[in-house]
Design a protein around this nucleic acid. Structure first.
Lengths: 235, 235
DNA sequence: TTCCTGAACGAACAGTGTTCTCCCATGGAA
DNA sequence: TTCCATGGGAGAACACTGTTCGTTCAGGAA
């Protein structure tokens, strides 16, 4: 069992068959990247510890040296995605548009990673670094807009909740702007008794309308305007 | 193997040991009630098909004769809970307070069943009868308030999303008004670098303040007022 | 060169939802 | 009364899940 012996041709062959394709050593970063790759390609349901291990040419147990639990891994994946959100420094003159831009971008990033928004719904309190960066920026903007501490605190929570929840909602509706989901709901509403549900049946078209991000913008306007009114900044 | 033989004392005893405590036959209703009982006592994580079977003195497989899948069962459980929400007929004069009452009550019912709100977050489109009753009532109130079809449609979605998402959020924070969660977050924020997160660290108190339903009311006011403004009904 | 720490990892555990398949009691027909 | 078909009840099994245990083994320190 010397160190020279395993370097022979025979040993190289043997070693190649015994533990073959592990080029780089395992690391927290590589694990999180692999996990995000799986979410992108196959969705959150496919994200299992075994699947991540497989992606890295190893087993599930090996991951636990770098990651405490699956819950932690999912949080780290979400934080990695948040990296893609670029932040601007708060500007009192345009804070409302800044806030909207930030939330639109957050939604966009979440939706670009399949149903990753599901993770964001669970992780409602920002504890990972980039999630906290976003909260920090948002708080700055709200304070720049003249909101007092408590209103800004409630506001950042409210806006984050709205964004993640609508992104989750959208991601369950078949990914993109698929009309397949809309059509299924609409045809279901057609089978519903008109006398018991006169509103729903008569408004079926308005209820199932789902044109891109119009719905998101609708709520965004109400929320930002409502927050602005709290500080007397509203026009 | 006649029908008389098994009625002897011996057979009765034997039968009692072989298939003992199944008094009533299994039914959809009994299954859903048992499931809600489990959620109340042990939470959504404890709700498994085997656990429901056990609650009824049988196995998991027997449930599938009455319920298509676990997903459907969860939806039925949620619908059963919605039964507890009493609905008023829309009144144009007080529609804003009506809407708020309805949403407060919805939140209250969700929170009274542990973390049942988790199910409500997933089931964002009302398809079960009582969920549709609620949506119907809400639409009536919004229309009574003078909102046009599209605004009312977006509004009912927005308000439902807000209520279920905040209820879910609250249910993850340790059930009741437990200060244990608040304290954990607050002490975590104390360990965070002040230079990178000046806002978060300086506003830690405001951010972690969680006094009962104050937070919920804050968002509720903004949303209802924002919707009212869309119809020119705002005061 | 020896020792030792810690990563890697196969196997196993206790679960999960769901399906297959058989058993058998019940109800209607003969 | 006898027969048979229908369908609910359930045990076993399948393919998974997250996590832990005990072992192995490679690389750096002494």
């Amino acid at each position: 069992m010397t160190s020279a012996a395993p370097r022979s041709g025979w040993s190289e062959h043997w070693q190649k068959e015994k533990a073959p394709p592990r080029r780089q050593p395992l690391s927290r970063e590589r694990i999180v990247e692999a996990a995000l790759r799986i979410v992108d390609a196959e969705g959150m349901d496919a994200l299992s510890m075994r699947r991540v291990g497989q992606e890295l040419g190893t087993g599930a147990a090996s991951l636990y040296a770098h990651v405490g639990s699956k819950e932690e891994l999912v949080e780290l994946v979400l934080d990695l995605a948040y990296t893609e959100i670029e932040l601007e420094r708060p500007d009192p003159a345009t804070w409302q548009e800044q806030v909207k831009r930030l939330l639109r971008r957050s939604r966009q990033v979440l939706l670009s990673h399949r149903d990753l928004a599901r993770a964001a719904v669970v992780a409602n309190v920002p504890v990972t670094p980039h999630a906290m960066d976003i909260a920090e920026a948002m708080l700055g903007m709200l304070r720049a807009g003249g909101l007092d501490e408590q209103t800004a605190a409630y506001g950042v929570d409210l806006l984050g909740l709205y964004t993640t929840a609508t992104a989750f909602e959208a991601s369950t509706r078949g990914g993109g702007d698929s009309e397949e989901f809309t059509e299924r709901i609409r045809s279901y509403f057609d089978t519903v008794p008109t006398d018991r549900y006169p509103m729903i049946t008569s408004m079926a078209v308005a209820l199932t309308r789902n044109v891109g991000d119009e719905r998101f913008e609708f709520g965004l306007d109400i929320l930002v305007a409502g927050l602005a009114r709290q500080s007397g900044t509203a026009g």
